[in-house]
């Protein structure tokens, strides 16, 4: 049967509009205005807090980048000095390096462990909810408490790790006193604290996957690794995408554990960007402008890295 061009026919005589075009325009504008107003009414409560405690502070911060003093001494306009200093300061370079090294150690470890645990947890017929709660326990721990707990782990004399090492006949390690070990110890703490959160997130995503696909793949003779590689990973892409971007954003802001455990030391080996920002703004009191400029530098760094990740992960 051959193709035939299908065309329309005009049906029905056009009736008379009862409102003039001007009236239509007016009524329509009023209708849309009311709808927009309703939507904005829903946004207002959140916007108030958002503006007061996020937008305005960011504005302030930007203003401060061009000034010195302001807290103790009077505020002085210094132009781009603070920005210039940020790129000259050795500790800025060190702190950025430390932060990036930390992210490169922490994020992959957390994800691999979490994904593995989520896959294992998915297979557990009984006791799943108990394990889920236990795994989440470290995430629920306040940093102050986590840091305390972690001192019991890494303490030179009576920490769990060294006690175990001694028992095995090995030399104890100076986990936080040694500049080579300190950042790794911080990473261990952060991984310990973070695994529960990501495990639950991955588990939730795994449970939501369509079962039929797995049955079909099993019938097709795919083994467990092939199913993981060619089904689970592609299907979890949205979750992994979200996880990678969020983990980058969060981990680049590493601060609490550093502040409590090592306060940037020893020899600045755990100095992170946010730690340095906090030092310049609060501890050194009058370097607010420098801290502000450094904050914007970090913001840019986060934005750029997040955008690169979004690019890379979206493409594939």
């Amino acid at each position: 049967m051959s193709d035939i061009t299908l065309t329309s026919t005009e049906i029905g005589a056009a009736g008379q509009l009862s409102l003039s075009p001007e009236e239509h325009k007016r009524e329509q504008r009023r209708y849309l205005l009311r709808r927009t107003a309703t939507a904005y009414l829903f946004l207002v409560p959140a916007a108030v807090f958002f503006i007061a405690f996020l937008v305005i502070p960011i504005g302030f911060l930007f203003f401060y980048t061009f000034h010195n003093g302001g807290i103790i001494s009077p505020r002085v306009y210094v132009g781009l000095d603070n920005w210039r200093n940020v790129f000259r300061d050795d500790l800025v370079i060190t702190s950025i390096k430390n932060t990036l090294v930390y992210c490169l150690m922490a994020i992959p470890s957390v994800f691999v462990i979490s994904m593995f645990l989520a896959l294992v947890l998915q297979q557990a017929t009984r006791g799943g909810s108990v394990f889920r709660s236990v795994f989440y326990l470290p995430t629920l721990t306040p940093y102050v408490v986590a840091a305390l707990i972690w001192q019991f782990v890494v303490h030179r004399d009576f920490g769990i790790l060294n006690m175990t090492l001694v028992k095995l006949g090995r030399d104890p390690v100076n986990w936080i006193g040694d500049p080579d070990m300190a950042l790794k110890s911080i990473t261990m703490l952060e991984v310990w604290r973070g695994v529960g959160f990501w495990t639950l997130l991955f588990l939730a995503a795994l449970i939501g996957l369509p079962k039929e696909l797995y049955q079909a793949a099993a019938i097709d003779g795919a083994n467990a690794w092939q199913r993981f590689r060619h089904l689970t990973i592609p299907l979890l892409r949205p979750t992994i995408f979200f996880a990678v971007v969020m983990a980058t954003i969060w981990n680049l802001q590493l601060f609490d554990s550093v502040s409590i455990m090592t306060n940037g030391g020893p020899q600045n080996s755990t100095a992170t960007v946010v730690w340095y920002i906090q030092q310049t703004t609060f501890a050194y009191t009058d370097k607010v402008g420098f801290g502000a400029a450094l904050s914007f530098t970090l913001l840019m760094l986060i934005l750029v890295l997040a955008l690169i990740e979004i690019r890379l992960l979206r493409k594939r």
Binding site: I4, L6, T7, S8, T9, I11, G12
Partner: peptide
């Protein structure tokens, strides 16, 4: 209807017996 355009209006049997165009007929 097709592509947002009304093709034909009528009693079911009339439309069936006298399709306005090939689209309605088909």
């Amino acid at each position: 209807m097709r592509s947002g355009v009304v093709q034909q209006v009528g009693r079911p049997q009339d439309v069936y017996d006298n399709p306005a165009n090939t689209f309605v007929a088909a």
